[in-house]
Design a protein around this nucleic acid. Structure first.
Lengths: 247, 247
DNA sequence: GATACAGTTTTTGGATACATTTTATCCCAA
DNA sequence: TTGGGATAAAATGTATCCAAAAACTGTATC
């Protein structure tokens, strides 16, 4: 499947992965020479990749000063949820008018898969990745059904914000997980019946609740979020320089 | 005041202007050698600029095939309005809780300026630019007051879509202009009183109406939109190759 | 007359080299 | 000791050069 990709694209993808996976931490300086050598390419395609990621909001850039892994304030994370809630609610409103039998089936399948993954009464570690994928697919499916490509594009951007992503699953509290998945049930149900406003309201609540839960989790288990944006710092602080050389 | 800008940034800005002003038309091929020579820079910073603009959605890119000025379908333009309506409505809801006396005064000033510009009973050609600026400033001010930077960022992106921009003023029908400006009055009023939902509803209608009006204008004066996205074509058509060499 | 094909030309992608700016170091003076 | 400033070192921004890929052109063939 991987074919004829240009080095710039490969580098962009690798850097994106490294940032989203936490291999590169917010605030890290992105030295061009070192990174280029690590990736086995010259600085030209690397800079192209960095430029692209900067526009996409994953890295920050200052003239003559270079690129850094972007840091997000808690306000930005919180704001990302607000906007996501609104955009995905809009997606529901639009999707309700575009429902086909195939679409209904697709959503039902995703919901059923979630049921299956939660049926043991807990989210087993080996099911975490699948659940995550299912969750992403569900939200993506709704946005695709909306027929408005901007929604998908912007929500994708917001997924670059750590902790604001669908990828982040709060697996500690099973009750919360069940409730969240039940939202999916109800959203799929409402959409299938063409009830756009109802689905929109559910989706808005679904995402708003996720933010609230995230907030609580951050208070309960702050250590889980240490590798995340500068949550503890009030605004803009230079994060401690770490020596990372894990080839 | 403008100094110390890197040539990449200058090129990015110039290209953006050229595209948004219509100097470069959707579908135009962006030859690297020629553009670099025109701008008086080498291909390296030019490519950085193009890469940035590609991520921002102003130009499209295909590997080994180069950059083109992006073309938008009518569905995309229409979708841009939908999302804008939702995002700016959200901005109103949030801004209502952040109103200060200074903010109230700022909005009132902008509204008053609009009154002044419309007072002759028509939008005079020499006032067009000022009215445009006022309009942009009003919407920007509301988004800034929301305190959510994502809203501003995404709406800015949508302004890259031709005809979906605040810059585009429908000046033909003065009645419509008056009505639109009256919306500003009411939005500012509602916000000043902290009535977020009311302001949001007004803003949503304000923008939805703009789309509807655009649609009508396109039917009435199609020639005004010939230089715009491929509106007349159903989906993706190669726009006729024009020979443009107006140095 | 249209189409497929091969060779040429053009254009893009990437590597390297150079120029400019920023940052770090060190010395000296207050 | 601390501050300032000159100098050195490093990193970034840009230009140029080379390789690979695409597009173009003309010819031959059906």
């Amino acid at each position: 499947m991987s074919q004829a990709h240009t080095s710039t694209e490969v580098a962009t993808q690798k850097l994106r992965e490294a940032i989203l996976s936490g291999e590169l931490l917010p605030g890290d300086k992105l030295h061009q020479d070192r990174l280029a050598e690590m990736l086995g390419i010259s600085r030209t395609p690397l800079r192209a990749a960095l430029t692209a990621l900067a526009q996409k909001g994953l890295v920050s850039y200052a003239s003559n000063r270079g690129f850094y892994v972007r840091e997000f304030s808690f306000a930005e994370v919180s704001g990302a949820f607000e906007v996501r809630a609104e955009l995905e609610a809009l997606a529901c409103r639009l999707a309700a008018g575009n429902m086909t039998d195939e679409a209904r089936r697709h959503l039902a399948d995703l919901v059923a898969e979630g049921d299956r993954l939660l049926s043991p009464g807990a989210l087993l570690p080996e099911n975490l990745a699948d659940y995550r994928r299912m969750n992403v697919n569900f939200h993506t499916a709704v946005m695709a059904l909306s027929g408005n490509a901007w929604i998908m594009e912007f929500v994708q951007s917001l997924h670059n914000v750590p902790a604001a992503s669908d990828r982040v699953i709060m697996w500690r509290d099973f009750r919360v997980l069940e409730r969240s998945h039940d939202d999916h049930h109800r959203i799929a149900h409402a959409l299938s019946k063409g009830q756009g406003e109802r689905a929109a309201a559910l989706m808005r609540e679904h995402i708003t609740f996720a933010l609230e839960h995230l907030h609580e989790q951050m208070k309960l288990y702050p250590q889980d979020f240490l590798r995340m944006p500068s949550f503890d710092k009030p605004a803009k602080g230079r994060s401690g320089q770490r020596n990372r050389r894990t080839t």
